[in-house]
Amino acid sequence: MNQHLVLRVVAKMLLPPILLFALYVQFHGDFGPGGGFQAGVIFAAAFILYALVFGLETARRVVPEGVVRAAMAVGLLIFAGVGFAGLLLGGNYLNYSVLAENQKAGQHLGITLIEFGVGTTVAAVMITIFFAFAGRSARMSDEDW
């Protein structure tokens, strides 16, 4: 994609808003539409766009595969860990009400944490799947399409 100057410039301009929008969707999911799933996909989309335009090797340098693979598990562990935290504090599994001094604060904290876990896992899995697919394709010229 070295010769596509317009694509490269536009992609570079789009990346920060996409990442910012993903974070907005992530942490605004309590108030408007959105949440961890959508935010994770949007976050991953930014890296996939980067990989499409600037090449897989460059993208792998930005997000090393080891980090992404670890993040896949970390997100799920955060979610399950919040559940166990509820157990240890005397509630049921995944009961967030006991996480803080009152019910609403506990629910809010729990939901924020598990949404963060969901977002982390979804983003990492999407990036991993894309890397796995793209890593196998033979290099193609634009005319092949």
Partner: peptide, 22 residues
């Protein structure tokens, strides 16, 4: 206490389902 009911159902009432989805 979360304004978006969808989020409160997904994350709190149906937390087990969402854990399963993840």
């Amino acid at each position: 206490g979360v304004p978006n009911i969808v989020t409160s159902v997904l994350a709190s009432y149906r937390g087990f389902d969402t854990l399963g989805e993840v």
